[in-house]
């Protein structure tokens, strides 16, 4: 039962964030790139204020899979490292923490480029 509830909340929160972004697309002239940056910064702010972990406790993947999670992850890495290493840590922390995803994306993109070509629609 609790599993079902978890997934329901993941679905609900994930969908909620995405439809918020969709409303921005329809109602304003914002481009996807701007909306992505907006949500990314939202994630950084939430993490910076320490609110993100409470949302994550309920929403789980519903908030960590959207770009908000990426922002929060960056901010958390930077904050943790800044407090452990000091001034220099703030610059490295975000990248270190998110390097798994970004690295995978770059390598996989490169590999896929070797195999496939874009198609005309």
């Amino acid at each position: 039962m609790s599993i079902l509830l978890t997934y329901l909340s993941v679905f609900g929160f994930g969908g909620l964030f995405c439809s918020l972004a969709q409303i921005l697309i329809i109602k304003t002239k914002l481009t996807p790139a701007r909306i992505l940056v907006l949500f990314l910064i939202l994630g950084i702010v939430l993490e910076g204020l320490g609110v993100y972990k409470y949302i994550f406790a309920i929403a789980k993947a519903g908030v960590s899979i959207p770009i908000i999670g990426f922002g929060a992850s960056l901010a958390r890495g930077s904050i943790e490292m800044a407090r452990q290493v000091g001034f220099l840590g703030a610059f490295a922390g975000g990248l270190v923490r998110t390097a798994y995803g970004v690295g995978a994306a770059i390598v996989a993109s490169y590999l896929i480029t070797l195999i496939f070509s874009p198609k005309s629609k």
Partner: peptide, 19 residues
Amino acid sequence: SHFATAERQFRYPLEYGCQ
């Protein structure tokens, strides 16, 4: 004119998902 070349020049990559 060609859809694929115009798309690249004026908009996004072909396989980029956008509405």
